[in-house]
Amino acid sequence: MNGEHKCLAETNPFTPHPARIVRSYHLTKDVKFFQVRFVDMEEALRFDYKPGQFAMLSILGAGEAPFCISSTPSRPGLLEFCIRKMGTVTSALFELKENSFIGLRGPYGNGFPVEEMRDKDILIIEGGMGVAPLRSVLLYSLDNRDQFGRVAVLYGSKRPSEMIFSEEYFALKGRNDLECHLAVDADDTGKWTENIGVVTTLFRHLKKVDPENTFALVCGPPVMYKFVIKELIKLNIPKDQILMTLERRMKCGVGKCGHCAIDYIYTCLDGPVFNYWDVLHMRELI
């Protein structure tokens, strides 16, 4: 290969950069937490991301898939992912031991408009795996607590055993600078001390919301959106301040492979964060 191609390798947007799994452990039976670090320090510095962006993870031989970043850029060095065992790539990833090699490229997508959200109240509504992308923006707002107004979290899980980051969330309940309401659809342990019911039942515990000044961030299973948005509209939160982050099949992350296309947009370039206004005006979004 000649010099011209060698130079190109540095700019090839598809090249997975070597990274290692620093730490991994189970959050629930089928959800695992991964801390990842780039092998090359320069690559780590170049990887400048915003909450809500995603990365492409390559597992040797199994393939490549998109994953939202669960860590916050306010805690640099390590990237964190919260991943459910679902397909070929995640199954192979679950087998990997700490210090194993993986490929990583990104960050991709628009992420949450944290600049625009500055000084505003933040209301996070999340269900199940919805915590994976929203944990990033939650931790970001807590690390930059003085840059945001009120912070409130409504988090619903199916069962206590399926609650992801349960320790982190119970710890948040002890803080007096944010509201944190937790719920499970059903308690099969008999030891659950928080609310029982779907995530929307938590709205009644929420202190009075200043709608014009609030950004609502929603992520969860597809069935959740309709009901949550109804509640948010009832609270008079403007449609362009209701943000959601979406999932699509992606093979490139950079607007080439076409898989995440919706109408005239690519989820990987124009998303994955959309506001409710977008959703109303674009078919197939949710």
Binding site: S58, L60, G61, A62, G63, E64, K251, C252, K256, C257, G258, H259
Partner: peptide, 19 residues
């Protein structure tokens, strides 16, 4: 039409895999 798919393939022996 530009859409494409990507698959990783492994080979027997000590050969590099292909994306």
């Amino acid at each position: 039409c530009n859409c494409y798919n990507v698959v990783d393939k492994l080979f027997l022996g000590n050969k590099p895999g292909k994306r």
